[in-house]
Design a protein around this nucleic acid. Structure first.
Length: 104
DNA sequence: ATCATGACGGCTG
DNA sequence: TCAGCCGCCATGA
């Protein structure tokens, strides 16, 4: 854990993402003051407990896509949760310009 | 110390 | 637009 931020900092940021909005892994890293650490943010999400209350589904990659194998159960769960919040997903892609959250 | 792997991202043809 | 390729950082074998 040599990263310039701790898991709890990332968890906090994620808890602040408004319903119906999304942010990218790289964005979270930047918000935590560490450009280039997108991958590490992903590593942290992997450690999340199964029934966590954090809205982890609002975190997607920079291409505007869900970072799970298309069709996998986790992919379907994330997609379903996002659509339920009003996020439009067409052709597996999300319009970042329209849904991306830019901080508080 | 080296190698592979991952919920990433940017550049390029 | 899209697939490749490469760079990036942490973690575990």
């Amino acid at each position: 854990m040599t990263a310039p931020f701790t898991p709890s900092e990332i968890w906090y940021l994620i808890s602040k993402i408004p319903k119906g909005s999304v942010v990218t892994y790289g964005q979270l890293a930047e918000m935590a003051g560490a450009r280039g650490y997108a991958r590490v943010v992903g590593n942290i999400l992997t450690q999340l407990p199964a029934g966590t209350d954090l809205p982890w589904h609002r975190v997607i990659n920079g291409k505007g896509q869900i970072s799970f194998p298309d069709g996998s159960s986790r992919y379907r769960l994330q997609k379903q949760r996002l659509e339920q919040e009003g996020v439009i997903i067409s052709s597996g892609k999300i319009n970042l310009k329209a849904h991306q959250w830019h901080g508080e």
